[in-house]
Write a protein that binds this DNA or RNA. Sequence first.
DNA 1: TTGAAAGCGCTAACAA
DNA 2: TTGTTAGCGCTTTCAA
Lengths: 350, 350
Amino acid sequence: MNQRKKATIRDVAEAAGVSIATVSKYINRQQSFSPSVEEKLRSAILDLGYSQNPAARSMVTGRTTAIGLAVMDISNPHYANVMKGANRVALANGYNLLVVDLEEKSTGVRELLEPLVLRTDGLIVSARIPKDVVDWLAELDKPVAFLGQPERQGVVSVGMDSVEVASLLAGYLAQQGFTRIGYVGYPRAAWNVERLRGLHAVLDPAGIELMEFNAEEPTSEAGERVAAKVLLRSDRPQAVIGCNDLVAIGLMTQARALGFRIPEDVAFAGIDNIPTSRYVTPALTTVDVFSEATGEAVMKQIISMVTDQPPSDELRRQPLLIVRDSAKRVSGDDIPAKAEELSKSEELGK
Amino acid sequence: MNQRKKATIRDVAEAAGVSIATVSKYINRQQSFSPSVEEKLRSAILDLGYSQNPAARSMVTGRTTAIGLAVMDISNPHYANVMKGANRVALANGYNLLVVDLEEKSTGVRELLEPLVLRTDGLIVSARIPKDVVDWLAELDKPVAFLGQPERQGVVSVGMDSVEVASLLAGYLAQQGFTRIGYVGYPRAAWNVERLRGLHAVLDPAGIELMEFNAEEPTSEAGERVAAKVLLRSDRPQAVIGCNDLVAIGLMTQARALGFRIPEDVAFAGIDNIPTSRYVTPALTTVDVFSEATGEAVMKQIISMVTDQPPSDELRRQPLLIVRDSAKRVSGDDIPAKAEELSKSEELGK
DNA sequence: TTGAAAGCGCTAACAA
DNA sequence: TTGTTAGCGCTTTCAA
């Protein structure tokens, strides 16, 4: 069955008594064959254990049947789930996934991506990379789809609208009756300004104060680190939005360590709806951005670009508010610093 | 700078006025050159934006400078962190990572792995794949390193000793004074029997009863689903070990939903020390298996195999017990087998 | 339906 | 130090 040395198309041709061209056409299902040839080919391939050498094929066709995926941080469950979706669609279509974890780096990114361009037919890249790298990619003679909206027009991007996501959350918090809301952002991300825009768009008209803070990284650890700054102050926000669930969970954990009751003393909400958010206490209110479906969608998109097919009519999904316990307006009591107007609207009972 | 068509080695040779062999040697740093040639090469490559075609190179050298990584479930933070470590070492050594998420499948695994073998110089594969696939891989003419110990001798494997991990945890729980301990395993994993062995090795001599349960999958959801079966019984265990943190967290969450106080009524412990385990309430006692370091180690290992270097003298790391609140023996009283009583837990007073 | 032959871009002898 | 050349395994005209 298995030879010591990999069988080549030539070995198959010889074993089957046909030319290599015929073998090539056979394995690529490019035409029909006489039954006798077909059978000989089938068995020759089988007992030589032959399989195509992708490098050789790639050389002449110029295609690799591989897609590159570059994410900011694979240990962020959002990205892991994007990858899960992308992986599924890639495998189903006969593509392999070349993955690069950027580890939240902002320098040397292009050097990391460079090897991918020759090795793949198309690239999926987080929009959160430096602008010059986005530009370089966009100018490349290779299909690229961005995860999220980069600071550049005219590129393909898949993912939620950041403004919308933020507005959705702001709307809910406003409706809960919070009047002073904190946002812990991550200024190095392109979406940060959009989030802020979405927040302001809803909160400003409602006369709700928005306090802006920044995390050093979009991680739980960074959330923990910034918590004291956000919470230990006379004008402490009544509700705090983390720029993602990880940050929110870090904030919430540290808030509890500082002695705050959640959500009575301070409420929390996140963005992404990572699996963990359901298992923390209290369960985290968040916005589902459908990470896995996003991964599937972006992979479908890049594959259709690569194969010159019309883009899949995957409609842009709407973000979905996930109401859990961490951001319920439970009591109207003290929380002061100054006066707290109770009697705000209390629509959602439970 | 950037041509419409990718520049080839021939273009560079022409632009620099040298032969393609010289260019090849130059880009592979195989010898030294006269200053004039060196300079011409440098600038020609630069302004043609040339880069090596990996497929072409691979064809003649037979090497791909890519490593395959197949994990059971990339949304399990353990695997995501293994991948993070592997990614880091791979990139640092000029290798690219071809990743396959097996999605906990147990059929068709070989078909998923097959394309990787021709595309990579070596493979890192979870030991939790079907035995026949392990055998196939082991017989392959390609370096393979397993993540964890598969049911087969004589293969390279990196990761914690499952017996040891289980014993460590059992030792702690015994020391805490628990006398009836539950283990929620995942029978389809090769490590399951070893875990059991490690547990029994410690608990049996101590006269501690071990109750065995199984989760349908190694996930939090499966943990939640099995919780009732584990807990709603007259001989309820005083402490429950999840076969990984995910399962333990699911169990714990559902236990709380069922009205149990943790760890007073029932204690929990997991295995892996995924980041989340620190953020649940109460924080989960677990065993650190150093996922990320494992990823680094296994990648170093496979690279040294691929390059015929002596295996890195990475010593096998010991698992580390992480004591947190979920498994502290708080009350010595007799956990009643029936109803729950007492007031609610007031936890943090503030 | 089948085959011959020309490369794809590169490396590695071997020569010069 | 530099160049010539023979392939690596495959696909793809173009003929037969």
